[in-house]
Design a protein around this nucleic acid. Structure first.
Length: 110
DNA sequence: ACTGTGACTCTAA
DNA sequence: TTTAGAGCCACAG
């Protein structure tokens, strides 16, 4: 495996993030920070967001299941259209509150 | 190397 | 309950 010092940096982080996101079950959501922790990189919530953005091409990932810790959804134009993320989540049975946020109390993963 | 930006989160007001 | 501010860190120019 070569030397592999601290040269590995973010590639491992991204790979771990993708693996975690891919394992979020339908009907459930996880926050960026939560994904970071589960991926083994606590404190890298923003990196998770960046990873999602760079992964737009990788539609295999259920990136619509990743939301803010508050339950808010990603900014409007993400996913190629406003309301898209909400529609996808509702199809999976995710509950929403009156304010438009995800009901984390019932839909948070684990 | 330095700076600006943001699909983040917490705390305090 | 809602807003602001600050800390955070990877990325692009």
């Amino acid at each position: 495996m070569l030397k592999m010092g601290e040269k590995m940096k973010n590639r491992d982080l991204y790979q771990a993030v993708y693996r975690v996101v891919a394992s979020i079950p339908s009907g459930r959501v996880a926050s960026y920070g939560q994904v970071a922790v589960l991926a083994g990189w606590p404190g890298r919530a923003r990196a998770v967001g960046a990873a999602m953005r760079m992964t737009v091409v990788e539609q295999r990932l259920p990136c619509h299941r990743v939301v803010y810790s508050s339950g808010a959804l990603a900014p409007g134009d993400a996913f190629g259209g406003p309301g898209r993320q909400r529609r996808l989540l509702e199809q999976e049975g995710v509950a929403f509150l009156k304010n438009g946020y995800v009901d984390m109390k019932h839909s948070i993963w684990r």
